[in-house]
Simulated assay, not measured.
Amino acid sequence: MMEMATSFLYPPPPSILLNTMTVVGLAALTNMVWSEVSGNNLKYSKFNNASSQKQRFGSISSRTGMLCLYTPAFLAASASFFLSPSEDLRFLLLKSSLSLHFFKRIFEVLFIHKYSGEMPVDVAFTITSGYFSSTALVLYSQSFTLGLPEPTLDLKFSGFLMFIVGIVGNLYHHVLLAKLRKEDEGSGKKEYKIPKGGLFGVVICPHYMFEILVFWGFFMISQTIYSLSLAISTTFYLVGRSYATRRWYLSKFDDFPKRVKALIPFVF
């Protein structure tokens, strides 16, 4: 088993911080998965009900909140070009992919997604810290691989291809979702519809499916233990999130087609 792992992974870094955060991250995401499945969702997007609950730390507009989620991680990824200059192609692909990923998210917040309502400050802070720390730690972990022999199975180019497929597919389905959202004239109420187009005919969360490809692309580019744990954690969280999303649509729409799965076509 160890020999197989070393064929596609760099050895564990000599860093207590990274090794600890790998375990902590997996444990935290496992708890988040259970929370999503059990109905205790993170309060943003369609699951947000901030306006009807007293928030301990206050709230901010959803658009501002979403910008707060992604901007620090984007700055961390972008700064890595200057703070950790390297001619290593793998490191360059990782920096570029992370930067493009969070730039796309910021672009979507500003020009694609439509928002209403508010986001609790504590939720915004928690998610922002998670994105920023995981981005910084992925890059920090990669710095320990510089000068080491490449893994026997080099996945960086196939990983970059997977990342591109994931980010394009995610963007496309986000555009389809944005076209469905609108405000009732004069009422200011949210209106949701069953998504159509793209892969929405077979799964209700194709954007999550492509998001998973993005994070597995990060892992395949970097091939570090920390990035593997991040990909696994993200996958399990989005599985829980997609399950909760499908359950939400089933509760809101009597005509929701039962054949439409949550995340994996014809399976789940």
Rank of each mutant, 00 (worst) to 15 (best):
F163P: 01
L161G: 07
L75F: 03
I264K: 13
A5R: 03
F157T: 13
D122G: 12
L29I: 08
H207W: 03
G65A: 11
F268R: 08
D254Q: 15
W216Y: 05
L69G: 02
E3L: 10
T126W: 09
F125M: 15
F160W: 13
D254H: 10
P14H: 06
F103G: 09
G197T: 14
V202F: 06
N19Y: 05
T128P: 01
W248K: 00
Y131W: 12
L9K: 05
N31V: 15
S97A: 15
F102H: 13
R105K: 11
V165Y: 09
Y131Q: 10
L98D: 04
S97P: 04
L139D: 09
F144G: 10
N41D: 05
L94D: 07
A231D: 02
P120G: 14
F47W: 09
Y10P: 06
T128L: 07
N48Y: 01
N170A: 04
L110A: 11
P265F: 13
I127Q: 09
L155V: 07
S62N: 11
S222C: 04
F132C: 14
R181S: 04
M119F: 11
E183P: 02
S134Y: 08
G147F: 08
A262V: 11
F57S: 11
L250A: 11
A5M: 12
K261F: 12
G58F: 07
T6Y: 10
F236L: 15
T71L: 09
G117P: 09
I60E: 12
E36P: 01
D122K: 12
S251Y: 04
T22P: 02
G186D: 07
T234D: 06
R246I: 01
F210T: 00
G58R: 09
F103V: 11
F157N: 15
T235W: 05
K190Q: 11
S96N: 13
A28L: 13
E185L: 11
E87I: 03
K46S: 01
L228F: 05
L29S: 08
D154P: 00
D255S: 12
V24C: 05
L176C: 06
C68W: 15
I194Q: 03
W216S: 02
T235N: 03
R63H: 12
L17N: 02
V260H: 01
I232P: 00
F8K: 03
Y208S: 00
N19M: 08
L75E: 02
S134M: 13
Y208G: 00
D184M: 09
L250V: 13
G130T: 09
L17C: 02
S15N: 02
S129M: 10
L238K: 07
F160R: 08
S84L: 07
K190Y: 04
A76L: 08
I164W: 01
F102W: 14
F256K: 14
G159E: 07
E36N: 10
M4S: 10
S129L: 11
N41M: 06
K54T: 13
F82G: 01
F107K: 08
V267P: 13
Y140M: 12
F144Y: 13
F74D: 04
A28I: 08
G186M: 03
V123T: 14
K43T: 13
F102L: 15
Y226Q: 00
F236G: 10
W248H: 04
F219L: 05
W248I: 04
A50Y: 06
